[in-house]
Amino acid sequence: MIGAAPVRLEAHEVGKWFGEVVAVGSCSLQVGSGVVGLLGQNGAGKTTLFKLLAGLITPSRGEVMLDGLPLRDHVGLFRRVGFCPESDALPGWLTGREFLRMLVRLSGVDGAKVTGRVDDLLERFSLTDAANRRLGGYSKGMRQKLKLAQALAHDPDVLFMDEPLNGMDPVSRHHAIGAIRQLGEEGRTVLVSSHILPEVEEMTRRIILIHRSKVLAEGDVTEIRDLIPEHPTVVALRCTNPRRLAALLVQQDHVMGVECEGDDRVVVRTEHALAFYRALPGWLLDAGLPVDEIHTVDDDLASVFNYLTGD
């Protein structure tokens, strides 16, 4: 399972094909609460999987379940789902307020609460001043904010966000990332589809990686990184006695190679980074070796993505 318990969203051997083209092969997933990034290259099947999980398209095989119920068979379950589409083509003839009002009503919010809810959303996304302007005059960033606002219109506990930061300026982007992280911390399930890895990395360490129509990996980036034996993890340590540290480390399990770089840096290649990190403090304490800094060079999302996809 990916994310915190309990399992909220499940895919059982879900597949989708269009004629002879397989968009998504057989895919099984269990997603709990928290922010999860759905990553993949263009054409990998990311958007199709995203829409399958969001219940927007019918799978050719398998089933998507929300809290144990088939999402496609229970229209009422969509009260718990929020969706932020990728495209920013919105009805230009509506004002921001009208647009949100309609979608809040369609989400089944009590008529008496609609106005208050719309006002709250407009304020939360700093759109109050533009609320009565037509969407045709909104900037790309404002449209993006409005799309996020409509996804939250009915306080859903499962959110699907397709490229949610597209077109946002750096300040709005920073706020949006904070807002998305907060949604995850509140216990909601937030599935974010993106191809901009640093953005996803700022939101979460939990990912689902899809490549050539198949789920290639799912889980925490560090854990996934640890499961790629053909690319040992590179760990850099800074200390005052690098030669002694190198001699100590080269004898240890999980260490595949050690290099001294300059006067104060040791670079270690390990096939099992998590075990290495668990054991490292003990080795250092036993040897009485102080270390000033430790950091993993290539367990970031981009490295994991590149190692797994071979690009």
Binding site: A54, G55, V75, F78, V81, F83, P85, P91, L103, G108
Partner: peptide, 18 residues
């Protein structure tokens, strides 16, 4: 046509609407 053009369909059908 406008809903298709403006991607309204995904906004509608991601809600409890048949």
């Amino acid at each position: 046509a406008a809903d298709r053009r403006e991607n309204g369909l995904s906004l509608y059908f991601s809600r409890p609407i048949s």
